[in-house]
Amino acid sequence: METDFVNLTAENLADEHLCCIIRTKKLHQGVEAKRQWLSDRLSEGHVFRKLNAKATVFIEYAPLETAWAPLIGDNYYYLYCLWVSGSYKGEGYGKQLMEYCLADAREKGKSGVCMLGSKKQKSWLSDQSFAMKYGFEVVDTTDNGYDLLALSFDGTTPKFAENAKKLSIESEVLTVYYDSQCPYIHQKIEIVKQYCDSHEVPVDLIKVDTLQEAKGLPCVFNNWAVFYKGKFETVNLLDVAYLERILKK
């Protein structure tokens, strides 16, 4: 089994592929936006570790204090994403990546590791049942079924910021908050734009550009959040079918 992993650094970021969307020669706008976003995060202790192969096998996490998620806690890591896909599933790569993150947290004296989950597993969120095998437990919840899972080393626990539990905004129009953390976001925003333009659907696309903005959002957020008629709908990235289901409400 391939066990050669590499961590992205300021020195290799420009040359390494970013796993989620694999391209050879042609530049991909979502990938390049993610590359720029990462270039500003690595100095904050953000970790992107991947299999040294053209494969979607990686883990991404950051100190909770600088993680772009509306969470409160001291001395934790926030796990954005752990993803193993295709023929690489079932080969133990997820185990190696998770164990690396937990060992890194312990070595750096962290209080634990936390991640976003839900009562029903959502696409675009890391597999919480896999995390629970390592001792992750639900430590906070929202009224609409999202959970904060944590593995605590010292008995302390993080929590959702109060604003994250608001789950409503004043605007009634379709509203999407997004950042550049995920390479798929660029194309999903284009899908929403094109659909709303062609169907004359009012839409507000709000790019989250700062840590302060991300921490202050009125909903749970991993890199994307959707509201409609003033109500929070999902953290899932939208395709046309999903968008149409929301608009029928």
Results as ranks from 00 to 15, higher is better:
Leu174Glu: 08
Thr142Tyr: 14
Phe227Glu: 06
Lys25Ala: 10
Asn52Pro: 00
Lys188Asn: 12
Asn7Lys: 12
Lys110Trp: 04
Glu190Asn: 09
Ala225Leu: 05
Ser126Gln: 02
Gln121Asn: 04
Arg23Ser: 01
Glu2Gly: 08
Arg41Met: 15
Gln96Gly: 10
Gly30Ile: 05
Leu167Phe: 01
Thr141Tyr: 13
Glu60Arg: 09
Val220Met: 10
Glu99Ser: 15
His28Ala: 10
Lys207Phe: 06
Ala150Phe: 11
Asp4Phe: 00
Lys25Leu: 06
Val220Glu: 06
Trp37Asn: 12
Tyr61Ile: 04
Glu233Asp: 06
Asn7Tyr: 07
Tyr100Asn: 14
Ile246Asn: 14
Val31Gly: 03
Ser198Val: 06
Val240His: 05
Glu99Gly: 02
Ala53Val: 10
Leu243Phe: 00
Lys188Asp: 13
Val139Phe: 09
Leu27Ser: 12
Leu151Cys: 02
Tyr88Ala: 08
Leu151Glu: 02
Thr175Cys: 08
Asn236Cys: 11
Asp147Gly: 00
Lys188Ser: 14
Lys193Tyr: 13
Glu137Tyr: 07
Leu71Asp: 02
Leu51Lys: 14
Phe232Trp: 14
Met115Thr: 11
Gln187Met: 10
Lys26Arg: 15
Lys207Asn: 07
Glu16Phe: 13
Asn222Asp: 11
Lys249Val: 08
Trp83Asp: 02
Pro183Leu: 09
Ser126Asp: 00
Cys114Arg: 08
Cys101Trp: 02
Lys231Gly: 08
Gly145Ala: 11
Val226Tyr: 11
Thr24Val: 14
Cys196His: 12
Glu44Asn: 13
Cys81Phe: 02
Ala164Leu: 06
Glu162Met: 15
Lys120Glu: 13
Thr157Cys: 14
Thr142Pro: 12
Leu8Trp: 11
Met115Phe: 11
Cys81Thr: 00
Met98Gln: 11
Lys89Trp: 03
Val192Asn: 14
Lys119Cys: 12
Trp68Cys: 01
Leu125Lys: 03
Lys34Gly: 04
Asp4Asn: 13
Leu8Lys: 11
Ile191Pro: 03
Tyr184Pro: 00
Leu97Ala: 02
Phe232Glu: 11
